[in-house]
Design a protein around this nucleic acid. Structure first.
Lengths: 192, 192
DNA sequence: CCAATTTTAAAACAAACGTTTCAGAATAAC
DNA sequence: GTTATTCTGAAACGTTTGTTTTAAAATTGG
């Protein structure tokens, strides 16, 4: 038998994800990546594969994190509308704290226009978010906390597409108030 | 005196813009660009400058186009609400026809997180869109076609941030109906 | 402790990158 | 038509890119 892998693969992928998020796929060089991951390129190619494969792994790692967050939210013992409002509030917090924008969105615009595998990873994430929101909107309607004039399906689609624009706005204007005003308006409209 | 520049600079920049839109900044090589522009790199460096400069010029060209479109819309002899609805309808058409997503959005997520000059170009564009929308919302309110419960400023911010998310949705799902449903919902909400 | 096997670090790889050079073609003013 | 100047095309520049090779260090089971 022989020695086993020395580095922590998940920690390395986490580091790679951060580099990709900061610089994008094309902007991140193998040297940037291996330096952050603290491994040699030979180890990378032995255990994970090439740059594309590493990116896919980083992307999957990212959406797995997001899925786990959703599951935790869903497990909370609160009215559905409260869970949704918390989800919105946390989305705002994410937007105004991440210096480089949401990674899923960055990936969508840099990579998903050309790479089928990236599209599929992001579609999975989009479905996760959609299903979470749709379910809680339906629940809130059943609980009489939300008007059921519109379908939960439409509202869920509309819901999850909304953050993306706020993200862009914050990248350009760095105006926290602006984002919070839009969020309050969004919630106001929802309850109408 | 000596000979004058042979190639059409604006046409060349237009071509460069298309390449940048398709491949992004880092994804577009100088060879891609000069081939599309049909000029030699020496001519490029003589007349325009390096890759960064070319990108800024392409970005400015793009937002100039968009500004001209807004001015044409504003000149139309129609009620303000009609102009806004047309603006929304055309945004939807743009989203579902552009294969590579809106260039302003792509730039925002790939470049604006790190490049100040790009931020400034995009802020200008954002202000143009904002001012157009704000003005017509205010007009529509004066004309009694729109509820004036919310401020035109807030609504305008919300307005222009909305398309971005629809763009991402379309990149992932390629679902025209989904976008159109969201657009109809958006208009419904606006008139409430 | 040995033998088998795998991981690692460092160097090397060709290809592609953005940019510059340079000689010759082209043009405008006289 | 000559001259002065500038533009153009092709080749070359040194770096950096993603990836592979190589040989030594490391670890495990017997």
């Amino acid at each position: 038998m022989a020695r086993s892998v020395e580095f922590n693969e998940e920690a390395a992928i986490q580091k790679a994800m951060e580099v990709f998020r900061e610089k994008g796929y094309n902007g991140a060089s193998l040297r940037d990546l291996t330096e952050a991951m603290q491994i040699n390129s030979s180890s990378l190619y032995n255990t994970i594969g090439d740059k594309q494969e590493l990116f896919i792994r980083a992307a999957k790692h990212y959406i797995d994190m997001r899925k786990r967050e959703l599951d935790e939210r869903a497990a909370a013992d609160k009215p559905a509308l409260e869970i949704l409002k918390q989800y919105i509030a946390d989305s705002v917090t994410n937007i105004v704290s991440e210096t480089h924008g949401c990674m899923a969105v960055k990936m969508a615009f840099e990579m998903a226009t050309s790479d089928k595998r990236v599209i599929n990873v992001l579609k999975k994430d989009s479905q996760n978010q959609y299903e979470f929101v749709r379910k809680h909107i339906a629940l809130a309607m059943e609980q009489g906390q939300l008007d059921n004039e519109e379908s939960p399906e439409l509202l869920a689609d509309y819901f999850i597409s909304t953050w993306t624009g706020w993200n862009e706005s914050y990248i350009l204007h760095k105006d926290v108030d602006k984002i919070e005003r839009m969020a309050r308006y969004f919630i106001r409209q929802l309850s109408k």
